[in-house]
């Protein structure tokens, strides 16, 4: 567990639910989700497709209104968008008409953070992500992995306490994905952010997280909240031979299997 993790939860959810109104009736995405995340923790959320993982993240980001249950960030109810939250989207979602540096600096140009820009910080972020030489390039000149690293830099631009990641590496090939996981672990350890990662990959979830939260099929509930007792820094070479890894992977797989996710 990260040294910066403290006792009081930074993110707290209680009885959190969400219903979407659809053309052919209402769809319940989440039902009674309870979860507490401490500052500095890295939590992965895995679950079957359509289990409401992304809805959970959208509620946390303030992109969807919280109408059912309680959701607090640092003891304050989430009522809307917060500058203390950075979101990393599925696929990098960079704007193709802006250079990498402009994309990463975008959060400092808009909204409440307007004119709060610190060019040195952007350069440092790009440097940290190994994109220093690509600052003036356009997104189409970058590989998928580099684009997503830029997406992470953008989410960190306002120096938020919380980083929400919605299947950020789903579009990448397996090898790039492993490299990105190692990079993300490094970035997380350097920055001390609280991270909530939504993923489909059991390996990725365990590799990165302090805790793996397994969700049920729709409507999404928390099925299990499993601590990952594997020392850091982790590497893919050593983690697979760690006895806790195999046991944990089997448990998560079993839970998902029971939900019909792995048929």
């Amino acid at each position: 567990m990260n040294a910066q993790a403290s006792a009081a939860p930074l993110i707290a959810m209680e009885g959190l639910g969400k219903v979407y109104e659809g053309a052919s009736g209402d769809v319940r995405a989440l039902a009674g989700v309870g979860l507490a995340i401490r500052a500095g923790e890295f939590v992965s959320v895995v679950g079957p497709s359509g289990c409401g993982k992304s809805t959970l993240l959208r509620l946390l980001a303030g992109l969807e209104p919280c109408e059912e249950g309680r959701l607090t960030l640092a003891d304050r109810p989430v009522t809307g968008l917060s500058a203390d939250v950075g979101v990393v989207f599925q696929a990098a979602n960079l704007l193709p008409w802006m250079t990498v540096a402009e994309n990463v600096a975008l959060p400092l140009r808009v909204g409440t953070a307007r004119r709060g820009g610190d060019p040195a910080r952007i350069a440092a972020l790009l440097q940290m992500a190994g994109l220093g030489e690509f600052a003036a390039r356009y997104p189409y000149e970058l590989s998928g992995g580099m684009q997503q690293r830029a997406g992470i830099c953008r989410a960190l631009a306002r120096d938020p306490a919380i980083l929400l990641m919605d299947e950020p590496f789903g579009a990448l090939d397996a090898l790039t994905r492993e490299r990105m996981n190692v990079e993300l672990q490094r970035i997380w350890q350097q920055s001390g952010k609280t991270v909530l990662l939504i993923t489909h990959s059991i390996a990725e979830a365990i590799f990165l997280a302090d805790r793996v939260v397994v969700m049920s099929a729709r409507p999404g509930r928390v099925l299990a909240d499993l601590p990952v007792a594997i020392p850091r820094p982790r590497s893919f070479d050593t983690i697979v031979s760690h006895p806790a890894y195999a046991a944990l992977a089997r448990e998560v797989r079993g839970l998902l299997n029971a939900e019909g996710a792995l048929e």
């Binding site: 809307g80 979602n93 808009v110 909204g111």
Partner: peptide, 16 residues
Amino acid sequence: PERIDLMRALSASRFE
């Protein structure tokens, strides 16, 4: 919609 979500998550104004 992802691009609009991005701007919303940054609490950008409508004109921005």
